[in-house]
Design a protein around this nucleic acid. Sequence first.
DNA 1: ACCTGAACACCGTTCAAGT
DNA 2: ACCTGAACACCGTTCAAGT
Lengths: 214, 214
Amino acid sequence: MPPAEDRPYHHGDLRRAVIDTAMEMLNAAGSEFTLREVARRAGVSHAAPYKHFPDKAALLTEIALIGFDRLRAAMIAAGSGALADARSDRAGSDRVAELMAMARAYLDFGRDNTALYRLMFGAELGQNCRVHRDPRAMGALDEVLGMLERGQADGTIRRRPARGQAAACWAQLHGLTLLTLDGLLNAEKVGDGAVEAALAVLLEGLVQPATACA
Amino acid sequence: MPPAEDRPYHHGDLRRAVIDTAMEMLNAAGSEFTLREVARRAGVSHAAPYKHFPDKAALLTEIALIGFDRLRAAMIAAGSGALADARSDRAGSDRVAELMAMARAYLDFGRDNTALYRLMFGAELGQNCRVHRDPRAMGALDEVLGMLERGQADGTIRRRPARGQAAACWAQLHGLTLLTLDGLLNAEKVGDGAVEAALAVLLEGLVQPATACA
DNA sequence: ACCTGAACACCGTTCAAGT
DNA sequence: ACCTGAACACCGTTCAAGT
């Protein structure tokens, strides 16, 4: 997206343009993410972004938080989509379908936004950074937590501390996402369908087994 | 560890010195890991390391692989230690004790080697890098796999594809480690004992429940 | 065979000066 | 109020030259 050549000295909304450009660069593979390159692509001098962000970390923080918002939105969409589907065929196990749909939405997000995902959790921002102190970073976890609590209420999920179960879900999904991105869980290393199998283990630890003991 | 002042023009074993210095720097918090700083601390010119490593990535790769070796060793030690303890009081559930000991060893390793752990899995090496193609990166997984297979044989672990169960363990531990390092699982966010609770969920998904159905 | 010093192309960041 | 250009201190990497 090269800027219009007749763009005036004052960029209309450089702050937004910088964020958008940076976001595109992240998802375009291979590009070394440098502030100077962002400025170049946005068609401004390399010093211009400093009028809108105190430093590089501030821009990265903003982008990471947008990533967390998108992840949360994806999980909400997947969860309620699965619920709608399940209700139409009244099979009963809505909750499990919802859980699995949310899990897949999470994994898909990671697969489709590699660099953004790594940025969200990466150490580039310094540990204990602003991003992870922001409530927006907990969005996906909140959705999982809500789902688990509804599941405990309707009897499909084991009665255990729900926050612990949510932590287990998040950790499992985070781990699977990153190990997959690292190429550590592909077929020749760990056999076919390792991710599916791992999700099955998680499920078995969460759902209440049938109590009937014929 | 400043080098002896009478050190001659030719460093005895610069390759090893560079690796050791780099390892120390990683575990010393806050230090910006730069090749020039490594050379400085090792007491040589910033160009010297290039006689022993083609580039910075090669040094980082070597260090990351050492990290994987140490992680594997820690898990072996923890697992066999727990087995020895369990056998002395013949309680039967050796396998669960072994599993939990290995899990804790993994989490401890991450807590005590923050920067090294992030390097081992980080994107600094470029995705699909040499490190993750090396069999040494799968060391910890192999140990977990062996433990699970023994557990299936003696009936304490559910009969499921063991490689999938191992993937689930690894992902859960990796996720818990990183989320903790990121400060995303501490008490004020997710309640006390979230890590413990998550491990309990993993366990419930892995161990064979008592079959008796009085 | 191993190491150094100067050099190159890059960054992030700052700041006086421009519009 | 917003942007630029030159400048500073740093990197990773290379290479002719030193020991």
